[in-house]
């Protein structure tokens, strides 16, 4: 064993050394993730598209708990937005040490019915936006020899979900991107992982039939906080040797 290199490990970086950006953070999973990271001391950029009131509520909740946060309005599918988000956060809190690509949309329908526009919209927000923020984040992460990127994928990227071919493809691609980028930057102390939620109680899944619960070994839907707890782990120093993985948070659905 003496010949096996174990170092240098990635730097241990406390929240004093930067901030976290969470996209799609005004509600649901993103809001829970923003709150969890703030609890760990990370100043958080609460990126959101349109719901000013919800983003303000998340920001205030973080601040009331003694944390720091700033709401950042803008459509993440706009290719120019990542530069603006990062510049704002870098000026206010220092470098973005943690990126959580959570923003996502659904435009469901059978593959026979989905239009090119349905595909483009989903791919733009769920995949291309994550690619652009990742590319922007890596610029400083590789120089700093530290960074944490967590992509919020879905179990739908791993198994069939009729009516969601576009969404599933975007999430499967996100998982593939996670693995590949993780391998590219691992030697710089940057980890790139994904979480794949199953059925989680959020606004986005309100229309999902309750019968689905019968297929989940845990016999219940998950909560945003249960997903946020996994993101929190992947961002922490405790996960410094975990990269390229997709952590399923699904009550055993894909077991």
């Amino acid at each position: 064993m003496a010949d096996i290199a174990v170092g240098p490990r990635s730097k241990k970086v406390s929240p004093a050394h930067g901030c976290a950006l969470v996209t799609g953070a005004s509600r649901g999973l993103g809001a829970a993730i923003a709150l969890a990271l703030a609890e760990d001391g990370w100043p958080v950029g609460v990126s959101y598209r349109t719901d000013d009131a919800a983003a303000a509520a998340v920001t205030v909740a973080i601040q009331d708990a003694g944390g720091e946060a700033v709401p950042l309005r803008g459509d993440i599918s706009n290719p120019e937005l990542p530069d603006t988000l990062f510049a704002t956060l870098e000026e206010r809190f220092g470098r973005v040490a943690v990126l959580v690509n959570n923003a996502g949309i659904r435009q469901d329908g059978l593959a026979l019915q989905l239009t090119d526009a349905d595909w483009a919209a989903v791919m733009e927000t769920n995949l291309f936006a994550a690619l652009r923020t990742t590319r922007r984040a890596l610029r400083s992460m590789i120089r700093q020899r530290h960074g944490r990127i967590v992509n919020v994928a879905s179990v739908v990227g791993q198994r069939a979900s009729p009516g969601q071919s576009n969404y599933a493809a975007s999430k499967a691609a996100m998982i593939a991107m996670t693995k590949t980028v993780a391998a590219e930057v691992a030697r710089r102390g940057v980890t790139v992982n994904a979480v794949a939620p199953g059925l989680i109680k959020t606004d986005m899944t309100q229309d999902v039939s309750g019968e689905v619960v019968g297929f989940i070994p845990a016999r219940r839907a998950g909560t945003p906080e249960e997903v946020a707890a996994c993101v929190r782990f992947l961002v922490s120093d405790a996960a410094s040797y975990v990269t390229g993985v997709t952590l399923n948070v699904d009550g055993g659905l894909t077991a």
């Binding site: 610029r139 590789i142 120089r143 590219e184 930057v185 710089r188």
Partner: peptide
């Protein structure tokens, strides 16, 4: 190649 990207930056 990753070093070169860093140099380019």
């Amino acid at each position: 190649s990753l070093d070169l990207v860093e140099i380019a930056q």
